[in-house]
Nucleic acid binder design. Structure first.
Length: 210
DNA sequence: TCGCCGATGCGCT
DNA sequence: GCGCATCGGCGAA
């Protein structure tokens, strides 16, 4: 199989994100059709990118070859995955935000008992990971050469219209419309602007003077 | 449907 | 020690 987005240079990560819509990710006996993604630039000018401040132990994979999964843990309990794009040395990546379960429906339902409707099964970056039974062990594995737990396959039907808007849950660079989704798809969550978690009121605890 | 909130681990300053 | 590219349950509207 050929992966056109795999060949795109790092500065075209937004184009890679668009191209990834409609591709099918298979892992753990479940297949998901990508309906919502976000681009993150590795050029050093994207403050929202995990790689914005250079290479660290966590984001190391982002600096490697395209086609690898960059998996990170968020809020201590969830995992999210990116597909690394662009040439090695530049940390561009595409976050997988949502998808429609198109294979292995029973397994998907079993893994996400909280989902009330099938369209909710993969409607979120961490939900995708749950449905596909992927976690930190998938970090650094390839989705293009068959050696990893997850594999990407080209779309089996036309993708149709694509829409774009600001990225979700991102504090910085709110003006960049680098979230892409398949227009009208029910698995795409409504956009919510990032609300900084309200800091709990300063502890009213009196200084005990001790 | 929306908004708030707690859960919970760890990377990074 | 702070804050996070989140999710699900709850109560209010």
């Amino acid at each position: 199989m050929t992966y056109p987005w795999l060949e795109l240079p790092a500065d075209k990560v937004d184009e890679a994100a668009r191209q990834l819509l409609g591709w099918r990710l298979t892992a753990g006996g479940v297949t998901v059709r990508l309906t919502e993604v976000e681009a993150y630039s590795g050029l050093g000018r994207d403050p929202a990118s995990h790689a914005h401040r250079g290479m660290t132990g966590r984001n190391e994979v982002m600096f490697g070859p395209a086609g690898a999964l960059y998996v990170y843990q968020i809020y201590g309990m969830h995992f999210c995955a990116n597909v690394v794009c662009g040439e090695p040395g530049v940390a561009s990546a595409v976050l997988l935000r949502a998808g429609e379960v198109v294979g292995g429906l029973e397994a998907a339902r079993a893994r996400r008992p909280a989902a009330k409707r099938d369209r909710d099964l993969g409607a979120g970056p961490a939900k995708l990971m749950q449905v596909l039974a992927l976690d930190r062990r998938a970090n650094g594995t390839s989705v293009v050469d068959g050696t990893g737990p997850a594999t990407l396959h080209e779309p089996d039907r036309p993708v149709g219209a694509i829409e774009a808007g600001p990225r979700v849950g991102v504090t910085a660079a709110h003006d960049v419309p680098w979230r892409f989704w398949i227009a009208g798809d029910p698995t795409v969550s409504a956009y919510r602007r990032h609300v900084p978690r309200k800091k709990p009121e300063l502890p009213v605890r009196e200084r005990t003077g001790r």
